[in-house]
Design a protein around this nucleic acid. Structure first.
Lengths: 237, 237, 237, 237
DNA sequence: GATGAATGAGGATTCATTCAT
DNA sequence: TATGAATGAATCCTCATTCAT
């Protein structure tokens, strides 16, 4: 009954290249208009990020977002069919960037390193990303939006998979015999990271650094005993 | 101008002594009526707990709570001056029970035990309490209600203090030199417990047990190296 | 659709004397009950007077009246079918007393006195009554209750008639030729009295006395030129 | 936490200069839109005036006002933050016009005229204003709104001052010796005017004219004896 | 595209009134 | 009778969403 779907921008994005070619002649004006549209969207999403951060998704009113973006509510609805779509789009973008950050975190070569280095390599980008995009938490945590929940779940599942992958690569003995347990460990690791992230985001300066150190200590001590590896491990995949 | 306090009962203070005398003989009826009121309150709080659990405080409508309790909206307001008061009362009751559970958890004699037993002694009641009162999380986490936030903070500070106390009792070396670091460790411990609690609450049966075990493992491995007390420890699991 | 009518007490009041006679044997118990009922009604009306005085009729809640009377809302409805009935009953009682006061004010022999004495004789009881029954104004003025409005109108009409009567007795020349004008004068007199009454009620002590004097001065100077009766008059104050 | 002030418009402050530039060419459209808003406000205020007049402030529901204005309740709240603000705005506008009317009434040159002319000069504009703005009474009298009460008090105090000024100018002997008494006289005059105004507003045509005449007669006869200014006066009517 | 007015379904809360005890 | 809980319609107000310009 209600449109849960994407934004209207997606429709334009789906234009076939053929049509795009046809328009090259008169392209300057539309392009500018399209560019302005993009700017508006970015503007709106930035505003939404700010408002969501401050008040949470539920308490954020579309009017507040429009006002923060310096446009009228009508304009907002020119680009997003409803409030949820804003969150989904914003979540998507943040997710995209999160994936990039994580891609950088879970490099294959990291798997060969000793655990402390591995933790540095994986956690630092994740922490950095979250510090730079505080709205990410606000959205992913308890927005209650189905669309977001799905995205969040996808992200979560992805991260779980990556963590499990790392754990498997580190050759935890129980992992081979009991995949369920490995899953539990991965969940715990993720949970610990999230909990610490909250402390990290809430603090700054030296305190923040201290929490980062502490997080790594927790994970190191938790995971180190699980790791069989003396030396000989072969890169996964 | 607005009553923020408990219920609206006890308005009959102005009763003439004559009438009061008339009633002493037949006091059982009023008492039964009062009992009904208490039952309603319990009913309403239970309903509120359910609704808050499902939708969170902000999205919970008083009408929904009344409906869940099987009464009319007006009845709800006979016992609570406003939505917030319901949350505060419920939070207060849960807090009370939480304090009892925690009192049982942080017994002085536990401090002398080896870490694994200490963890069992402390965590088991906390976990049990949270499993039995899932609304506790829903309320304490992000209700946005000032009264609740205060209660939560008090609880949080109290728990931090207790954790620090335990840590200090276990003679963590850094604790003496650096109280700030001890505070960070306490925060981490609490964060880890909370994160795990979420996993524990979201699962059941064997999986839940597994997460409990995992939580204890995490904390043991995190804290054990900090403990000066020399010999008698045996890795858990 | 709604009972606008009298109270339930009225029903009992209407008991035929025959029935009353039948009951004389067992009268002591009922009489006490009835007496208690009367007390309750008096209690409730007193409470209503207070609340109406403080907040006005519209803003007065039945619960507040019951509370002020020290009884439960249910009890209030045992004696009055609805909020309006309370106002009507209270208005009726006050009106009764007002009529008594006015009856004392408009004595036939006063008509023969010189104007200053006449004014004293008429105004003093009216003023005294209103000072002693401040609820009278609160109710009569802008209660918006149809029943009250009617009572008020009756009172008003009655007073107008009496004032006209006095004026006519004083043989104002225009009164004979133009009854409409006489009516206007009566209205003005009443209006002036009411306006002054408000000032009188709002003040106390010497100030109140000053306003009383002023009121009489206004009326004297207004009416004196209209009076045919030639001889001996001396300006007041 | 809540906006008590004017309307919610003027939120577009954050507009980028780029868009602002785009619009300068087509400014007529926004202006027309704004004009529509102004019209709506006027419409709503007119509706409010009507409803307040009929039912009084307290009993007037915002939905009723919206309905009377032919708009939805939401629209009303687009322009006024709450019910009180409507009353305050309406009161303010009426007060403004009242001040203009009164400014016209209390011209300095009037003070030199004989009393009957002075009364004409002062009363006629006041009466005219009140006849044209019947909502003025409804609002100023017993709205119970703090904002209004303040406005009303200011008006009242202002009028008292003006009346006292006039009285002093007319060189009432007692005024010099006893300022308190002068104040009482001013209060009486105002009270008489108000009472008469009620009669005037409630009637029409010849009757209304008659009451106007009567009011002036009352005031003339009340004040004339107080005036020192020697001879030239002629009884009115 | 942009604007801001318009909409109306809800949500919190009150209160006159009724009812079981 | 007295009690106080129960009712539900009505009130003020909000906000996601739509529409005319």
């Amino acid at each position: 009954m209600r449109e849960t779907s994407r934004t209207k921008r997606a429709d334009k994005a789906g234009e076939s290249t053929a049509e795009a070619a046809l328009k090259t002649a008169t392209e300057s004006a539309p392009r500018r208009r399209q560019a302005r549209g993009e700017r508006r969207i970015a503007q709106l999403l930035a505003a939404a990020a700010g408002v969501f951060c401050r008040t949470g998704y539920a308490a954020a009113s579309t009017n507040a977002i429009a006002r923060e973006a310096g446009v009228s509510p009508g304009t907002l609805y020119q680009f997003f069919p409803n409030k949820e779509a804003i969150a989904v789009e914003l979540g998507g973008q943040l997710l995209q960037r999160a994936h990039e950050a994580h891609g950088q975190a879970f490099l294959p070569e990291n798997l060969d390193r000793p655990l402390p280095e591995l933790l540095d390599a994986v956690l630092d980008p994740v922490i950095a990303f979250n510090c730079e995009n505080p709205a990410f938490w606000a959205l992913m945590h308890g927005s209650g939006v189905p669309g977001i929940a799905q995205e969040h779940d996808e992200l979560h599942v992805g991260m779980l998979a990556r963590v499990e992958e790392v754990l498997r690569a580190c050759a935890i003995p129980t992992a081979d015999t009991n995949p369920a347990e490995l899953n539990h460990v991965a969940h715990m690791v993720l949970g610990i990271v999230k909990a610490s992230l909250e402390l990290i985001l809430a603090s700054e300066g030296e305190e923040r650094a201290a929490y980062v150190t502490e997080l790594k200590a927790v994970l190191f001590r938790y995971l180190d005993p699980m790791i069989t590896t003396p030396p000989p491990r072969r890169p996964p995949r």
